[in-house]
Design a protein around this nucleic acid. Structure first.
Ligand SMILES: [Zn+2]
Length: 189
DNA sequence: ATTTTCAAT
């Protein structure tokens, strides 16, 4: 059920969780939207976004999509609908996007976001750290992509031609480093 | 080793 085809080389280059990710000067956002009501979640939408060069960040492109999407379904189903959004994002959100998304989540109590980032973007800049805390405080689940998420992302968003996901060197070590850093950031007040 | 980063020295 691959609905979105991303090149395998491109995926591995852009999502590799290096500590110093030279040349990854763009961002991918693989996402899906599911209906949360009922026992089994129902897939409503799945897509991949990339930022516009020197333009909108992927988070803003996502919000544009989501606003249109909600407007189209709210008419028929009104407020009863709970949607679960899952993000697999190559760089974690910048401060501005994080705050914009946090505001969106506060306005939409029936939208739930799980955010998995491969790498932390400007991890030591206080404003960026604050942005991640704002997302969490707005109810988002903010985590680092681990082997499970890389594998899921590969399965659903990559044109892998039947090839299995092969973890790269240092993947687990880097997951650990970024997870610890994220934990430190989210625990700070 | 102490580097890069939603591009542009
Ligand atoms: Zn941004």
């Amino acid at each position: 059920m691959t609905m979105v085809a991303k090149d395998t080389w491109d995926f591995l280059f852009q999502y590799e969780n290096l500590q110093f990710a030279d040349g990854r000067n763009m961002t991918y956002l693989c996402y899906c939207v599911e209906e949360k009501n009922g026992d089994t979640p129902m897939l409503l939408h799945i897509d991949v976004l990339q930022n516009e060069v020197a333009g909108s960040h992927v988070e803003i492109l996502f919000l544009s999509f989501m606003r249109r999407f909600l407007a189209s379904i709210d008419q028929s189903l009104q407020e009863a609908r709970e949607s679960q959004v899952t993000w697999y994002i190559s760089w974690s959100p910048c401060a501005d996007c994080a705050n914009t998304v946090a505001t969106f989540l506060r306005e939409r109590n029936n939208v739930h976001l799980r955010l998995f980032a491969s790498r932390l973007y400007y991890r030591d800049v206080p404003e960026y750290q604050q942005g991640l805390r704002a997302l969490k405080e707005a109810g988002a689940q903010v985590e680092i992509m681990s082997s499970l998420e890389f594998s899921d992302c590969w399965d659903h968003f990559v044109d892998h031609q039947g090839e299995c996901f092969e973890p790269w060197e240092e993947m687990d070590e880097n997951v650990e480093i970024f997870s610890q850093k994220l934990q430190d950031i989210l625990e700070t007040r």
